[in-house]
Amino acid sequence: MSFEYHEPTSIADAVALGARFGEAGRFLAGGTDLIIQMRRGRVAPRHVLSLHRVTGLDRIEVDGAVRLGALVTHRAIEQCPHFQGPLGALVEGAEVIGGHQIRNVATVGGNIVNASPAADVVPVLLALNATVTCLGPDGERTLPLGGFLSGPGQTARRPGELLTSIRFDRLPPRSATAFLKAGRRKAMEIAVVCVAVRLTLDAARERCQEARIALGAVAPTTMRAGAAERALEGQPLTDEILRRAGRLAAGECAPIDDVRASARYRRLLVETLVPRALRRCLDRIGRAA
């Protein structure tokens, strides 16, 4: 493993280096994916562009919308007071990543650009309709997260582009989120399945106004369960309807058999965890009322 190591000190320098090295360069944030992939020989960048000295990318800004700098760590998400209420799924996703040491350095930007279908924070952001902003020599582009993720380890990021921020709207009243993860152990675990759900009820609190369901580890990318979402919208959220959404989500995902679990079990988990997460949202909305 041999490479040149660069430490740009500003966003502009980082983007310039990114443009210069293109495919041969990799940004280094927390390094918790990149270093391991380099050690295992899966990637071999000739230039590693550390983001440690770049300032201004680790802020969480909350006004009408929420903006996360790409270098915000999972620990920072866990501890952010704005995410204690309806946005709680962000904390639930972040707090199960790896262990303490990992969460202290690993970033949300790294979680997204690494584009593992099993990433834990990505489904929460997907359920929040997040957009991502990238900066390259040709300027800034903002894309919906769903469109950004294109395959395992693959994104629409252009070579050398820096992911700068992630943005999503704050939730309307009568909303909640929930995140659930299944794995063989309770920490240091790659999800066998993870599920993030966002739910908004109508003014009468009787029917579903909007539902977003994102699934991890059951398709080549983190995916939305569109059929399940549609089956909820406008409906009274009876247990039967929730369970139906679970069955639809299980039907529309495309899991594989691997050493972590069988496809059959992954579908069973989706079928179980989707209604469970929805129920949790209902509870939370009910409690907040």
Partner: peptide, 10 residues
């Protein structure tokens, strides 16, 4: 990663 020894939380 995939040889699963229990953690303190387990």
């Amino acid at each position: 990663t995939d040889y699963k020894m229990p953690t303190s939380l387990d």
